[in-house]
Design a protein around this nucleic acid. Sequence first.
DNA 1: AAGGCCTTGTGAACGAGTGCACAAAGTCGC
DNA 2: GCGACTTTGTGCACTCGTTCACAAGGCCTT
Lengths: 217, 217
Amino acid sequence: MARLPVYLRALHSLQDRGIATVSSEELAAAAGVNSAKLRKDLSHLGSYGTRGVGYEVEYLIYQISRELGLTQDWVVAIIGVGNLGRALAGYGGFASRGFRMASLLDADPRLVGERIAGIDVEHIDRLETVIAEHGVSIAVIATPAVAAQEVCDRVVASGVTSVLNFAPIVLSVPDGVDVRKVDLSIELQILAFHEQRKAGGPMGEQVEREYVEAVEL
Amino acid sequence: MARLPVYLRALHSLQDRGIATVSSEELAAAAGVNSAKLRKDLSHLGSYGTRGVGYEVEYLIYQISRELGLTQDWVVAIIGVGNLGRALAGYGGFASRGFRMASLLDADPRLVGERIAGIDVEHIDRLETVIAEHGVSIAVIATPAVAAQEVCDRVVASGVTSVLNFAPIVLSVPDGVDVRKVDLSIELQILAFHEQRKAGGPMGEQVEREYVEAVEL
DNA sequence: AAGGCCTTGTGAACGAGTGCACAAAGTCGC
DNA sequence: GCGACTTTGTGCACTCGTTCACAAGGCCTT
């Protein structure tokens, strides 16, 4: 359920505002989804709502957190300390809820020893050691594209089964390993695509007509 | 079609390796999708393949680029020059193909005037002016969550209809405005969810059994 | 020039996910 | 304590995207 984290964030926001109880209608609006969908999602976790009243915010936060595995700590290593790696290391959202940034690694010897967000950068040669020592369970790859597959292979060989990839390539991994990809320029390209359609298609009307039938994103 | 950018990247990679022609099977493997799906996607752009041979890489790159609107330049402004904003400004993938980074804006007066990736940071007060002067068509919001909605409103009021949001909130926008969201911690939470399921669910077997029936992400 | 071979393009079945609409169920006021 | 109201949980129909399987069609060898 990719939507649970979104619900969780909306719930935290409600909690910060001192709201103790919420209806599916309200929560759905805050999360930007249909209320029936939200109820169906939540019902899969069990019956945590009260008919005629709604959901208790705090209890629901706990249940979703448990479902997502946020009640335990996940140990994260970031490989690649370029601009993006630094941004990720400093991103407060990670440390705040269940994700512990354990290690930063890079291939550039000039970066090794530098202290970023309270962590000393180590050399990529120590990858396997670091993963074993800290018990890393999630690896974040923020290296250039050419290095990503090799880093991924080594990480997987060390027993990590969850990878978050920022490098602009499709990583190949064995079964049982989950890879999620975040590609910044792809997001921009999708926006450009929609922007262009709003403006009336790529060129003449002849081509445009075909677009009307094209599947909406 | 959210997959077109992925195909495009795979095609560029093939082109760099000097490959002139490619079958749907090969390209699908490189992009990590089913070959029938790929063919159906491409057929929506028109019949650009040759039966018995495959697709001509260069021609297909042109057609997809045109479809995505990458044959024209898109003017991008980044609002919020924190760690993430800097990383985005320095990210080569933007400038390389059709996206021109026109402006960096921030609310912190200490950052104003600083030069990042060849661009002088301007104060957020000049937001409307900058958008009009440069003809910005895509706004990237990399501000803290509390500021994001206000920035978004101002950007939209200035006529921008495409927004890429990195702030961890759901932006509300009028119809006709496209928002795409990238949320780094949500990606980690989804990985954690899968990692937990591999490990055997959040607690006892009783709960675990329900998970088996839960919808796969 | 003709047949075999290979790959595209697509019809059709399938499955997942979505949204509607309503019954079940609990609360609150009287 | 009882009835009306509110909101959850869910059966059902539907839409959309995916996948299979194959016919249509172009190239290359003989």
